Computed example of a mutant assay.
Amino acid sequence: MTKPIRLAVIGMGKIACDQHLPSIAGTQKFELVATVSRDGKPSVDGVQCVRSIEELADSGIGIDAVSICTPPQVRHDIAQFAIEQGWHTMLEKPPGATLAEVIALRDAAKAAGVTLFATWHSRYAAMVEPARAWLRGREIRRAKITWREDVRVWHPGQEWIWQPGGFGVFDPGINALSIITRILPEPLFVTKSQLFFPGNQAAPIAAEVSMRDRKGVPVEMDLDFRQEGPQHWDIDVETDAGTLSLSHGGAKLSIAGVENRSEENAMEGEYPGLYKRFAALVWASVSDVDVSPLRLVADAFLCGRITMVEDFIE
């Protein structure tokens, strides 16, 4: 039996505590041996916590891999340091603040002979793979992404999300892009975008993005952080055999109005699926660094027309 991979989690914010720690605890493929947090306060009983990745390297703790859950603005230097230690590295989404950072990390990991995994957790939602399989070979006519959520509910106190490199509404929006780039057979290109910036913030609170694939199929995306009441994480794809609808972030699937309840190929959960994949990559000594969702976000900013809206006050 392969020994558990000795893992440290770096950045003990909401996503690490809510998703990563339970997923690690639920698998025998990893052994959590350390956490890294600026306050140095232990998050898991019996697991040592240090204040920085440099302190982790000097601690003498045996480390095989790290999972980096910091905000994207500081992720590159931490990941580069981890790669230099020979540690396999898993990146929360988005994998970096810029495309250049992620490509540099990919090249560094290849040169060092370690695994780099740029994760897209929404691709591991239960119905994403069934949706991809159903769309294969069908004529796709158009698609619409509606990703509207209340930032005060889902990102309370997360000031980094409003800073340059924090992505604003594209932080959840990139989840939709990770799904659409997985289920559609052709690559997508941004044709135009409208970005709505609060007067007091450096990242958009809403966006409207028009895309097409290389066959000319239109894909429209509507993102908004100001949604109150029902939240929307939906993708609709119109085809020659009816409309496929993914809802609840990819957890539910209906085709031509009929809900698909098949559990075939369904993952056991988004983050458990990520750790299952990370272990497989480490054991196979390969990397998985798909930048297509991040590239579309970058292009949305490149093509974007900026409209200023009212200040955002949490």
Rank of each mutant, 00 (worst) to 15 (best):
A241N: 03
A207E: 09
R212S: 12
V258L: 11
P204W: 07
D222C: 11
P272R: 00
V237S: 01
E228R: 11
A202K: 13
G257Q: 04
V219D: 04
H248Q: 15
F197N: 04
G257M: 05
A256Q: 01
L195R: 01
Y271G: 02
G273D: 05
T239C: 02
W233V: 09
E268T: 13
S262M: 01
K215P: 04
E268M: 09
T191W: 02
E228L: 08
L195I: 09
S247D: 13
V209H: 12
R226F: 07
Y271M: 10
K192S: 15
V209F: 05
A256I: 04
R226S: 14
G242K: 04
G199T: 14
T191L: 05
I205S: 13
D240Y: 08
P230I: 13
D224K: 02
L253H: 01
G273M: 01
S247R: 09
E228A: 02
A266C: 15
M211Q: 03
H232I: 15
L195G: 01
G257E: 04
T191K: 11
N200W: 07
E238S: 09
V190P: 08
R261P: 00
A203T: 14
N260Q: 12
D234T: 15
K215W: 13
D234P: 09
S210H: 14
L253T: 06
S254H: 08
N200E: 06
A203Q: 12
M267F: 12
V217K: 01
E208D: 07
A241F: 00
L253N: 02
E264G: 07
Y271S: 04
E208W: 13
E220D: 14
G249K: 06
S210D: 13
A251E: 15
Y271H: 07
A206D: 04
H248C: 14
F225L: 10
G273V: 00
G216H: 08
D224Y: 01
V190N: 03
M211L: 13
G249D: 10
Q227Y: 09
D240F: 08
W233S: 07
A266E: 14
A206R: 08
M211R: 04
A266W: 15
T239E: 02
L195M: 05
F196Q: 11
E228H: 06
N200M: 08
E263Y: 07
E270D: 03
E264I: 14
F225W: 07
I255H: 03
A256D: 14
T239S: 03
E238Y: 00
E238H: 05
A202C: 06
Q194F: 12
R226A: 14
E228D: 09
